[in-house]
């Protein structure tokens, strides 16, 4: 059976540990049996505490790390096979947390060209891809600037453009918004949603911002190297106690209705956004008027 046309990443019984630093310390278990299918075109958010294994998982998804047991298959290519590494890295690009650590060019467009140059793409094609990628992330007018003159959000958009220039099918963002101010975060999220919805690029986004998680098609919660919950944002955040018990948080709006329900109200548990909230309040008011 071949389901490669719908599966972007398939992780089966994956285990991973980091080797001990010294002889008298022990190996550090990071991933303890993960099964996860990421579908093509999906927007998946990974949530979890610091040290839960989210970053390790991301690195297993583009062959920066190889499973110690189990398999990770990316677009039909097994990451354990060395011959597949470059194919996988072309398909799955990664944006890291600190924008300053991932910019290599002295000029924005040089930085974006770095990826396709290394893939051996012909110069004329590189020119085309760089222009297109910068246009997609809305950074065309900064093409000839020095990257250090950009804001954090702009730098992350350049990093995303650098990946787009390699024409990937999937982008992984490992806490790529955590150093950004509210505008910077919005800029990056807008670009991601656009790429996902319009170009069908698969997005895997690791974040501690619950409002960002609400934008996903699906949320997977990672704890202690395992995926302990999967579902739509509404399914995940409706379990307020469970999420808080894990040291995570829910959107403020969700928490408001959770607290009201604790006081005897009977509001739905899947209210995530201001729009959702306004809708149920309006319904309540309508009922109240009829009741009176």
């Amino acid at each position: 059976m071949n389901n490669n046309n719908i599966t972007m990443i398939q992780a089966k019984d994956v285990y991973f540990y980091y080797k001990a630093l010294t002889e008298d310390s022990e190996n550090v278990e990071a991933i303890n049996g993960v099964n996860l299918q990421v579908k093509k075109g999906e927007f998946l958010v990974l949530l979890g505490r610091n040290g839960s294994g989210k970053s390790t998982l991301c690195r297993l998804f583009n062959a920066l790390l190889k499973p110690k047991m189990g398999t990770v298959v990316v677009n039909g290519f097994d990451t354990l096979n060395e011959d597949n590494t470059w194919l996988i890295r072309k398909d799955v690009g990664m944006v890291f947390q600190n924008p300053d650590n991932q910019i290599v060019g002295n000029v924005v467009e040089e930085d974006v060209a770095f990826g396709p140059e290394n893939l051996g793409v012909p110069p004329a094609e590189i020119r085309k891809r760089v222009d297109q990628s910068l246009k997609t992330v809305g950074m065309s007018e900064y093409a000839e600037l020095a990257p250090h003159r950009l804001s954090g959000g702009q730098k992350q958009k350049v990093a995303i453009a650098g990946i787009l220039a390699m024409e990937p099918e999937c982008i992984i963002l490992d806490e790529a918004t955590s150093m950004l101010d509210p505008w910077g975060r919005k800029e990056v999220l807008d670009v991601l949603l656009e790429l996902n919805k319009k170009e069908g690029i698969t997005v895997i986004h690791v974040t501690h911002h619950m409002e960002e998680a609400c934008l996903a098609d699906r949320v997977a919660v990672v704890d202690d190297g395992r995926i302990i919950k999967e579902g739509s944002p509404a399914e995940i955040f409706s379990d307020v106690e469970g999420i808080k018990g894990m040291g995570l948080d829910v959107p403020q709006v969700t928490e408001v209705f959770y607290k009201l329900n604790q006081k005897g109200y009977r509001f739905p548990t899947d209210i995530l956004t201001v729009e959702d909230a306004l809708k149920v309040i309006k319904e309540q008011l309508a009922v109240k008027r009829i009741g009176n």
Partner: peptide, 8 residues
């Protein structure tokens, strides 16, 4: 708090 989870 940049990069810390909610509990941290």
């Amino acid at each position: 708090t940049a990069g810390l989870d909610p509990r941290g």
